[in-house]
Amino acid sequence: MKEVELDCLGEACPIPLVKAENKLKEMEIGDVLIVQIDHSCAMKNVPEWARKEGHNVEVEEIDDGEWEIIIEKVK
């Protein structure tokens, strides 16, 4: 199990989502991807996408207008 951080701070939609999608493809089942974002729309569409794909997702607000989306790859 490894943990990968993906820095998407300052990136506008849809780049965080596309980057997360690509990154997650390279990862193994059980790995955890942490996507750092500060785009309020990505805070909604990245978790929505990951949940639909069936992964475990958690959103953490780490600062004003900054979030970490924690995705555990399950399949």
């Binding site: 199990m1 490894k2 943990e3 955890v32 978790p47 929505e48 949940r51 475990n56 997702v57 958690e58 959103v59 953490e60 607000e61 780490i62 600062d63 004003d64 924690i70 555990e72």
Partner: peptide
Amino acid sequence: MDEQKTTGIQRSSTRTKRVRKKKKNQL
């Protein structure tokens, strides 16, 4: 589509908790 809440999802055990700086309240 249902609005999903961010709570209640199993957190990975490998996840290390980091210390965050204190958030200001912008309210």
